[in-house]
Computed example of a mutant assay.
Amino acid sequence: MKLVRSESMSVRDKVARARAELAAALVERDDEVDVVLTALLAGEHVLLVGPPGCGKSLLLDGLLAWAGGRKFSVLLTRFTTPEEVLGPVSLAGLKEDRYVRVTAGKLPEADLAFLDEVLRGSSAVLNCLLKLLNERTFDAGDGVVKKVPLKLCVGAANDGPSRTRVRSSQLSSTGSPCGRPWPRSARPPGASGSCGSGTTRRRSRPP
């Protein structure tokens, strides 16, 4: 999927053209395209719920080709460590008694992010994501809180929050599934069922 971006067009025209090209490439995914583009403009995040092969990662790849910037992608499991998402601890820094993360190529330096199976992430990873996604800030360990360039994070899950061991209240953003079956004529091999989408809603922590 290759989207053409013209610098001479207005923002409204750019978004309209991107929407048309994404919707043409992703059959019957107009609602998901609208949700992701709206979240990008509003500075929010998105959670897409649906089976494998229904175009969740392809949608972000197409958006990245249009928007430009750096992308970070990771598949989360209960064994995923914060180092895989935020970057490893600097060995040179440890020799100088400093605890600092090397964030090159990781989430703190990404413009667009794709977190696959985000609901299955460990508590350590989800706690680290909370402030980074909500406030767009990150402390590498040196005590200096810096703004991150993250514009949009798309989380994906094959099952809804009620069918995983992680409660949705633990996430910094969540979505309401609104499933719709992929048309059989355009369904990729192995894909079945529906792919839902939802806009983000921030949840307050329980007292």
Results as ranks from 00 to 15, higher is better:
V89Q: 02
V36K: 00
V148Q: 01
S194E: 11
R201V: 15
L119E: 13
C178I: 08
V102Y: 07
R98G: 00
D159Q: 03
R19W: 10
K106E: 15
C128P: 00
Q170M: 12
R187C: 12
L119R: 00
G105R: 02
P51F: 01
S194F: 08
R120G: 11
V46I: 09
D116A: 14
D34G: 01
G198W: 05
G50V: 03
D139A: 05
E96V: 04
P51Q: 14
E83N: 13
S173C: 12
D97E: 10
E109V: 02
A42E: 05
M1E: 14
A20N: 04
S168F: 11
G50P: 11
T81S: 10
A23H: 02
T137G: 04
S162G: 03
G143R: 05
A113N: 06
S172C: 05
P188H: 09
K131W: 08
C178N: 09
A124M: 02
L48R: 07
T164Y: 02
R202C: 07
A16M: 05
S122E: 05
G87A: 14
P206S: 10
A16F: 02
A124V: 04
K131N: 09
N158F: 03
N158L: 02
V166R: 10
D159G: 02
G121D: 00
G53W: 08
E135Y: 04
T81L: 11
V49C: 11
L130K: 06
K2M: 04
D31V: 08
L86G: 02
S169D: 13
L40G: 09
E83A: 15
A20F: 14
T38Y: 06
G196M: 05
L126F: 02
L171A: 07
V36N: 05
V74P: 01
K131I: 13
W182S: 11
V145R: 12
V4K: 15
G198Q: 10
E84Q: 12
R167K: 13
S8R: 15
K56Q: 06
R167L: 01
K71E: 01
L119I: 07
H45K: 03
E109G: 00
S8E: 14
L132R: 06
G193E: 09
V144M: 03
G68A: 06
P206A: 13
L63V: 13
V33L: 06
S173P: 03
L94S: 07
T81V: 13
A18G: 01
C128D: 10
M1V: 12
V11P: 09
G190F: 00
E28F: 02
G87N: 13
R19N: 01
L48H: 07
R70N: 14
L64Q: 14
L63K: 10
D30K: 04
E84R: 14
E109H: 06
V154L: 15
R163N: 05
S169T: 09
L171I: 09
C178R: 10
R184C: 01
L75I: 14
H45V: 04
A18W: 15
R12G: 11
G62D: 11
A124T: 02
K106I: 12
T81R: 09
F114P: 07
P51S: 14
G93Y: 01
V15A: 04
S90C: 12
F138I: 13
R165L: 01
P181R: 03
E44G: 10
L63D: 03
A157R: 11
R136G: 09
A156E: 01
L22C: 13
G121F: 06
G175S: 14
L48A: 09
C195T: 07
V100G: 00
L129P: 10
R163V: 10
